[in-house]
Amino acid sequence: MKREKKADEKGMRHIISILMENEAGALSRVAGLFSARGYNIESLTVAPTEDVTLSRMTVVTRGSDEIIEQITKQLNKLVDVVKLVDLTEGPHIEREMLMIKVRTSSSDSREEVKRLADIFRGRIIDVTATSYTIELTGAGDKLDAFINAFEKTPILETVRSGVSGISRGAKNLHI
């Protein structure tokens, strides 16, 4: 019978996948809900689906079971939301894309970067005289490990897509 304290409860990580009307303003309704109610967002991605009238949004958040229950109920209550699923409730696949640009001013460093990219199954997607840009896809911890592996090579820029995810097997988020 206790009300959870939102701020100092970190709780479990959840990936909530939302199918919603592809309307102007739909994104701000979701973002506004999280900020107004003090829920945290670790990442948020959104893009249209194969049916352009629908968008699929993935929100990564943390919270106790009670808070996650409230988050899913509040999201469901938004008039633009058609359906949603907490992917972390079942088997699922989670992916994030990273692009990282590093300084490669010597042939040694170029070799080193190429070797790292191979180990992590990254792809070099842009090359200049002084830099390499590598693309890498995977779960968040793999991307973290890749970034941390650049001990000697200076990082010029990183950009991550945020997490998207999909259920394994027969379970679909579809109308």
Binding site: M1, K2, R3, E66, Q70, K73, Q74, N76, K77
Partner: peptide, 10 residues
Amino acid sequence: DPASISKNVK
């Protein structure tokens, strides 16, 4: 409203 249920009190 499902969101009213178990919001403040289980």
